[in-house]
């Protein structure tokens, strides 16, 4: 596994405590994702919790993976994929009074982490990550 604690810290900013979710597969380097994240947060600290990201553990079809994000009180949510050639997936911007939830489908080039980062009304940032596995399928029994 290439996603080390150090890499996660680099994504989240130096002041962040991150609980690393256990994933067991190789991933592309998340530097591009870190860059996209930085552009969204302006380098501000990002904390875990306060946002739900729902994605399948194993994608039924890597070309169209349903995900949903929910962060009540968010003004915007950025979704990133760490293993795609281009990490940016979507940015949802919410107007006043919106529920802060959204659902979409994303394309994943392979097994990787999907990140969702919400910008809250007070200017703080929260994150959630899910490992999504893309498999060649076969012979369950």
């Amino acid at each position: 596994m290439n996603l080390s604690r150090r890499n996660i810290l680099a994504i989240g900013g130096a002041a962040v405590t991150v609980s690393l979710i256990p994933v067991d597969f190789a991933m592309a380097t998340p530097e591009a994702a870190a860059e996209a994240l930085n552009a969204f947060t302006g380098g501000a600290a990002v904390t875990d919790g306060g946002i739900d990201l729902v994605a399948p553990e194993i994608a039924e079809n890597g070309n169209t993976v349903p995900i949903s994000v929910s962060a009540p009180g968010a003004v915007a949510i950025l979704v990133l994929s760490e293993g795609n050639p281009s990490p940016g997936v979507a940015t949802f911007t919410f107007g006043e009074g919106a529920a802060g939830t959204a659902a979409t489908r994303i394309r994943l080039a392979g097994t990787q982490n999907v990140l969702a980062v919400a910008k809250m009304a007070d200017g703080s940032f929260v994150r959630a990550a899910r490992a999504v596995k893309v498999t060649i399928g076969g012979c369950g029994g």
């Binding site: 194993i58 039924e60 079809n61 399928g137 076969g138 012979c139 369950g140 029994g141």
Partner: peptide
């Protein structure tokens, strides 16, 4: 149901 029906079998 089996969570991986559409992966382990022909979807």
């Amino acid at each position: 149901a089996l969570p991986y029906t559409a992966i382990a079998n022909p979807s």
